[in-house]
Amino acid sequence: MQNETDKEYAVKSLHSAPLSWVDKYADYLYGFAMLRLRNEDVAKDLVQDTFLAGLQRLDRFEGNSEEKTWLTAILKNKIADFYRKRSTSTLKDLNVTDAEHEQQDFFDAESGHWNEKHRPQAFGLEVDNPLMMKELGSILNECLAKLPGLWFSVFSMKHMDDLTSELICTELKLTAANFWVIMHRTKLNLRACLQKNWN
């Protein structure tokens, strides 16, 4: 009987924080994941996995860092795992010559000049107009969501997490040549998508 109360007490004090996690951190963690995934279902799954993993490791949380920082670190690892898995499964199917081939649609195969219909045109954008920039941002978000997963991982690791190209190549098992082909293709596609959907 005494044991029972002790146990109850221990559970209560240990777990008093986790019950407030969703209120305190779910939106933040979801935003963190969405910035790096642009996929609602995957982001939700990883946030849930993060909380559950946090529960499993509660005894190892020593309170040295903020709960939020600690949970974010767990989520970061989960995103990195997801990137790695996605890369391995994509690379099996990814043929760089295919990539090059697709790119030739933007440019004339012989001369490397822009093909008429892909030629960049001015967006007619006022960069100091916040409403216009917001609109551009939401179109860009849609374009980002349409990118092949591996390309988005590469682009996000480079620009969101500011990692070096060497580190990204190691993480995702890419060659340097592959990395730059992907960076180039990604930007060509994003730009074309913006031009198509702007106005």
């Binding site: 935003g31 910035l35 849930q48 551009l136």
Partner: peptide, 24 residues
Amino acid sequence: VFISFENNDFKLDEAFKKTLIEKI
């Protein structure tokens, strides 16, 4: 524009939060 996106540009729906709390 890409680096100017922020965490709070994305919000979880309340229904999902509820199931999260239940799971925890």
